[in-house]
Design a protein around this nucleic acid. Structure first.
Lengths: 217, 217
DNA sequence: ATTTAAATTTAGACAAATCTAAAAATATGT
DNA sequence: ACATATTTTTAGATTTGTCTAAATTTAAAT
């Protein structure tokens, strides 16, 4: 697979997430920032390689093989994003462009060991789930409080940092597994959040919010 | 610069190392594992971009600009090799192919931070010097004690850390500029080294060894 | 120095990935 | 349902990087 082919597979995968029906040529052209005619050409090549289903005028969708490939590229992208943030101190909003390049590096072993170095993370810095080696996505309904959309509600289901200092803090502030959490406001400046925990309003630092897993309801 | 163009610059740089005269089309074709006619085409493109000097039938050499670019690619290659060995536990003989890909990733910031993460190494896992950000190659004969090959001998010529604490330590242990140093053994576990300083055997921590410059003899 | 050999360049072609402009198929509105 | 609008595909051209085969230039040898 060339870089460009991998990017098309990724785009088809993302556009297909919502509905189960085929992706239109125009939609794909929009996503790829290219012209519909170019998309048609590329789709034909991809169909010949057996990674997409394609019938003229009927849109395109991934085959089993194409889906595996797309997930593998997405896995690489998100693992590299974690690396950039965790190991090289990039901000979560600076890493996308670099990861777009790194995701095309070809070495199974490299990715396995990167995964290990990072402690087998389940989510990338944007809160998106990282596909596993065998191609399954961890359920999206569990995510870090810091990654939840504004005004969403959920149930506290876990912690990322399980140090006793952190758990003690949660205890002191009456935050526990099973408690309801509502995200009221996000502070741009320091990424801290205003929440209600079981109707008790409180202000949590980014430190805290980025270590609490919440299941959306 | 495209990946291919960067690879040509690198190849020209390496073939030029020995003699000062221009690199022949055939030699370059050999290095790049391609045909001489392809090389001619590429050289013309590179000349138009002002990164090589080229006169028909007279061979090719790097301009100032081309040399800077080549060194930058080599720097990336060698830093990634250090990363693969130090952080991902690859063997030194497994990293070349992967580094060939990683060296083309475009981000100044990425390389600067990688350099920092690795502790500003001067040599790659094969012992080749890593060009600095400003494009100078550390001379092969001065290097950190911690980077010296086993059983090599040298003269202490400088320190990296020049804090008084460190200098006091050297004084107390009778290590000074001009003293002979022989590297007897390296401890895998903590990277400490066993050395003889002017025939006096001693055991130095990695802390120490990675702050002492030695000139090979 | 003249011929032969080797190195280098040109000419023409091809695959990948893109574009523009025009044609064909599908969808939409009343 | 029929005309019109939208979407999609085709046709032909371009760029990058490569190739083969032929022509040209430089080097070598007797």
């Amino acid at each position: 697979m060339t870089h460009s082919e991998e990017n098309y597979l990724k785009a088809i995968f993302h556009l297909n997430k919502g509905g189960a029906k085929a992706v239109s040529t125009n939609a794909l052209a929009g996503q790829m920032d290219t012209k519909p005619s170019s998309v048609t050409d590329m789709i034909r090549r991809l169909a010949e390689k057996g990674v997409v289903h394609y019938k003229k005028y009927q849109g395109v969708s991934l085959t089993e093989k194409g889906s595996r490939l797309a997930l593998s590229v997405i896995r690489k992208h998100r693992l590299w994003e974690v690396f950039l943030v965790e190991k090289l101190s990039f901000n979560w909003d600076e890493v996308h462009e670099i990861a777009e390049q790194l995701e095309h590096i070809k070495s199974e072993q490299l990715i396995d060991r990167l995964d290990e170095l990072l402690g087998f993370p389940q989510f990338d810095p944007h809160g998106d789930p990282i596909p596993t080696k065998d191609g399954s996505l961890p359920s999206g309904d569990k995510q870090l409080l810091s990654n939840m959309p504004l005004h969403s509600k959920g149930i506290c289901v876990g912690v990322k940092d399980s140090s006793s200092a952190f758990l003690k803090f949660l205890d002191k502030n009456n935050i526990a597994l099973g408690h309801r959490i509502e995200l009221l406001e996000k502070e741009e400046f320091d990424n801290s959040v205003f929440v209600k925990v079981n109707d008790a309003p409180m202000h949590l630092s980014y430190q805290i919010a980025s270590n609490l897993y919440v299941k959306k309801i």
